Computed example of a mutant assay.
Amino acid sequence: MRKWQVSDVMTADVVAVEPDTPYRDLVGLLADKRINAVPVVDADRRVIGVVSESDLLRKIEYVGAEQPHWFQRRRRAQQHKAAGRTAAELMTAPPVIVLPLTSIRSAARRMDEAGVKQLPVENDLGRLVGIVTRGDLLKEHLRSDDEIGADARAAVHDVLLAENFATVSTQVERGVVTLTGRVERWSTAMLTLRLVRLVPGVVEVVDRITFDYDDHKVADSVPAIFVA
Rank of each mutant, 00 (worst) to 15 (best):
R2I: 14
W4A: 14
D8N: 13
V9M: 01
V9Q: 08
V9N: 07
V14K: 00
V15E: 05
V15T: 11
V17H: 05
Y23F: 15
D25P: 08
L26K: 01
L30Y: 03
A37R: 08
V38K: 01
P39R: 00
V41C: 04
D44S: 07
R46I: 04
E53M: 04
R58N: 15
K59E: 03
V63I: 08
G64E: 08
Q67M: 14
Q67E: 15
P68F: 01
H69P: 09
W70H: 12
Q72F: 04
R73V: 15
R73H: 13
R74Y: 13
R75S: 09
R75D: 12
R76I: 12
Q79S: 02
A82P: 01
A82W: 00
A82T: 06
A83Y: 08
R85K: 14
A87H: 00
A93V: 07
A93E: 09
A93M: 02
V98D: 05
L101V: 15
T102N: 05
M111Q: 05
G115C: 05
K117M: 10
K117I: 10
L119M: 07
L125E: 15
L125Y: 10
G126I: 10
G126K: 03
L128T: 02
I131P: 05
R134P: 02
K139N: 11
R143V: 07
S144R: 10
I148N: 05
G149E: 13
A154G: 11
F165L: 12
T167A: 15
E173N: 11
R174H: 12
R174M: 09
G175Y: 08
V177C: 08
L179Y: 03
T180Q: 12
G181A: 08
G181Q: 06
R185P: 02
T188P: 03
L191Q: 11
V196Y: 00
R197V: 01
L198A: 15
V199H: 08
V199Y: 02
V203P: 03
E204S: 11
V206C: 08
R208L: 11
F211A: 03
D212R: 14
K217F: 12
A224T: 14
A224Y: 10
A228Q: 11
